[in-house]
Design a protein around this nucleic acid. Structure first.
Length: 226
DNA sequence: GTCCTGTCGA
DNA sequence: TCGACTGGAC
């Protein structure tokens, strides 16, 4: 089911080459700024930050609080996000810097990320998958929505409950299948990166919240909602 | 369940 | 003019 969904999305939308960032640290910053915000707004915020220099831990920690707040303003929740950024960057610098922090067993890093205020499961998994190369699946609002519509009998409950772990387990199995289909899909990291990006694309193009566009949806043949 | 917030498109 | 946006903390 979810393997077929991947094939349909991939052949309709093509490779997404995510995350749109030029360094692991930029992924970290973007992962925090994109919480409940449109990516176009996050790009504005990141460009603002780059006005002050190379996007690096030292830059975040050297900016005055109100300067930082104004820079991230376009991404919304700017008071929270400015503080969140500083706190997260401090924590990770204390642990030896992002690269070294990430270069350890997946579940060890994940547990430490979740212990940092401002990082929940989705943000932690985004950082693991796109800043590091850890094979974890990122579940977001688009994923819950797609599942709840695709097969309400099976998925409505966990989607309505926003059961992150249950949904992640479903996709982890699908990713495992896809990664074992020879060379064509790539390994678990590649498939997970691509799959999440494709679901986001689906959420924006077709599986929209209020007015879904089912007529042109790549999943229309297997979706109960259409 | 509620708060936090700017930007864009229907 | 309003809903939606790759959530998380309390």
């Amino acid at each position: 089911m979810l393997s077929e969904t991947y094939r349909l999305l991939h052949s309709a939308f093509g490779p997404q080459h995510w995350w749109p960032a030029s360094s692991p640290f930029e992924v970290l910053v973007g992962a925090i700024l994109t919480q409940q915000a449109a990516w176009t707004n996050v790009e504005m915020a990141i460009n603002n930050l780059k006005e002050y220099g190379e996007l690096a831990p030292e830059l975040i920690l050297s900016l005055q609080p109100d300067t930082l707040r104004d820079a991230v303003r376009p991404s919304g929740y700017f008071n929270q996000k400015a503080k969140r950024l500083v706190h997260v960057v401090k924590e990770i610098e204390q642990k030896g810097g992002l690269e070294r922090f990430l270069d350890r067993p997946t579940m060890v890093v994940r547990k430490e990320l979740l212990a940092i205020k401002g990082i929940g499961k989705e943000t932690a998994d985004s950082i693991l998958l796109y800043a590091g190369k850890h094979p974890v699946f990122v579940v977001d609002a688009y994923t819950f929505r797609m599942l709840g519509r695709l097969d309400p009998i099976r998925f409505w409950e966990i989607a309505a409950r926003r059961d992150y772990d249950a949904v992640q387990a479903l996709f982890t199995d699908a990713v495992k299948e896809l990664a074992h289909e020879g060379e064509k899909n790539g390994d678990a990291v590649e498939v997970s990166r691509e799959y999440h990006a494709l679901i986001v694309e689906l959420g924006k193009r077709n599986c929209r919240k209020r007015i879904p566009l089912c007529g042109s949806c790549p999943l229309r043949e297997i979706c109960q909602f259409s």
